[in-house]
Amino acid sequence: MSAPVLQIDGVTKRFGALVASDGVTLDLRPGEIHALIGPNGAGKSTLIAQIAGGLTPDAGRVVLDSADVTALDTAARAQAGLARTFQISALAMEHTVLQNAVLGALGARGGRLALFRSVLDDSELREKAEAALDRVGLSDAAGTVTAALSHGQRRQLEVAVALTLNPKVFLMDEPMAGLGMEGTAAMTTLLDSLRAEAPILLVEHDMDAVFKLADRISVLVAGRIIATGTPDAIRADAGVREAYLGDEAPA
């Protein structure tokens, strides 16, 4: 078995009396989709934020490619290869779809930002951005102002920006939320193809999608991982059924 790309090691986070992450340990291996599921308020987004850098854990470590990134800020973690998509879209709404994707390519290139050259005339950035938009199926909307996108298109754009980063790891927080049936199917196909680029830690409530995509599933309840295993093992786990899945797990 190859070494994990991302390792979460005993991560703990308290908000006052509430323990949002309670000694969470999990890893992400090359080429896999590892789904993180659990009821509302279980602490999934809080965990993603601690991995991506928005929140600092009270204890524990986040290790990317055998480097401890726990002390790094969000920007440094992004440069190190963590690409996050948000549960609530975080995009530059007044900019066009292409500009948002170019921003990603710009961040990925690193180095000093030019002050006087035209960013949209930079063919390297543009090509990378256009390739990412093409990949998620947003090429036709490249010139559209982001605020005018549908909810589903915004989700696609979030993924496209993550793609421009050439990440080592995708962290995706509910990419299917609010997508219709068609949108969910398209996103499922996209994520399925993305794992070849980099493994995905996928937070998702859509159990059909999760059980279709995931190589492994971890179940988070009240900040604690109660089970990790293959979809079959999770489906059969009595504790998981009781705490979360009920009869929801697709056969």
């Binding site: 850098g53 928005g54 921003l103």
Partner: peptide, 10 residues
């Protein structure tokens, strides 16, 4: 427009 977005791209 979105400081989070900018940080997330590094």
């Amino acid at each position: 427009q979105s400081p989070q977005r900018v940080e997330t791209v590094g």
